[in-house]
Design a protein around this nucleic acid. Structure first.
Lengths: 193, 193
DNA sequence: GTCTATACGACGATAGAC
DNA sequence: GTCTATCGTCGTATAGAC
């Protein structure tokens, strides 16, 4: 079973390509990674590779999609209630992949870019997840509630994305501290009765 | 006066090129802006343009430098004490230029990239300026002081950079609200005497 | 120093044979 | 589904006119 017509082998090859591309990005960075290198790693010619994707941008978009998906699954398996760090920053701490994410986000500002739809869906979804977490903490009385969770979610995601830029330039930057700082600023003031 | 040898004309042409490049980025975006287009806009051949710059990356870096410089000067002229918005986000709200900034920051993660030095100097300088502002507000008793200004500066810059990513995808994103929110979170709690 | 002409290699993309 | 061959464009390098 699991052999439905022509999709069986093609899908396997497709994800092999995506995994190969991800590995090359992680190793050699975003710049200087050509499709020919990726193709070579899969024992394929460039057109052979392009048979599976519409364009380079399409391939990169699907690499990003795959990464997001695995990160999402991995954190669903997690049971720790204090995994907000994982919720917010996707666990991306490999320079080449952070570079990929940032570069793609910039390129996706164009509505016509294949990754635009991905980011356009991703951010509201992320926002909702973070807001849900915040709402939970507020209900527990752990966080102050004078700013709406949705607005705070935008803020927290901005912190998580933005600290990556600083980290790309200076790797000694602590990527968790700013997020912790925001959350400590959000901590409900002790009730003075 | 102001004619010291061969530099007179060359420097003029150099900044004409930078201004032309900036305008094309602003108009047509970061992607799809080739050096040949920039050269054509300056009535120059490509090699003629490259006489002034070591490489494309070098040119882009100087475009960024120029932008930062003019933004810095403009805000020094400003006297309003409440111009923290200008202090933090450099007034960049043109999609193509934000895209340029973000893409360059990503590329500059490589130590060998010409823009690396620029960002490596820029962030600590920015941090210092923001920290100075925060320290002033703390001394005035307007802000709480339980987190060091330098750490808060990292946080505020992250917010400013990060919100740009969300704005690139969704132009209706309010880029000032998250910064205002952080600052309101930082507001000194009213003294309950 | 300023600039043109020409050429090179690598890239992403496409056409068409097998 | 995968190839060879080819295309146009990119950034870059060099030679040489003025």
């Amino acid at each position: 079973m699991a052999k439905r017509g022509p999709y069986e082998k093609g899908e396997a090859k497709r994800s092999e390509i995506l995994r190969a591309a991800l590995e090359i990005f992680a190793t050699e960075g975003y710049r200087g990674t050509s499709l020919r290198k990726v193709a070579a790693k899969c024992n394929l010619s460039l057109p052979g590779l392009m048979h599976y994707f519409d364009s380079k941008e399409d391939l990169l978009t699907q690499v990003l999609r795959m990464r997001d998906e695995t990160a999402r699954i991995r954190q669903q398996e997690r049971t720790s209630p204090e995994s907000y760090r994982e919720i917010i920053r996707e666990g991306a701490s490999t320079p080449g992949l952070v570079e990929l994410f940032v570069s793609m986000a910039a390129a996706a500002s164009d509505t016509g870019h294949p990754a635009h739809a991905h980011f356009a869906e991703r951010y509201p979804m992320l926002r909702e997840r973070v807001a849900a977490y915040l709402r939970r903490r507020i209900d527990e009385g752990a966080l102050r509630s004078d700013i709406e969770p949705e607005r705070l979610a935008v803020l927290l995601i901005a912190v998580a994305d933005g600290i990556q830029l600083q980290w790309l330039i200076d790797r000694s930057t602590d990527m968790e501290q700013p997020i912790d700082d925001v959350l400590s600023l959000l901590a409900a003031p002790p009730v003075e009765d």
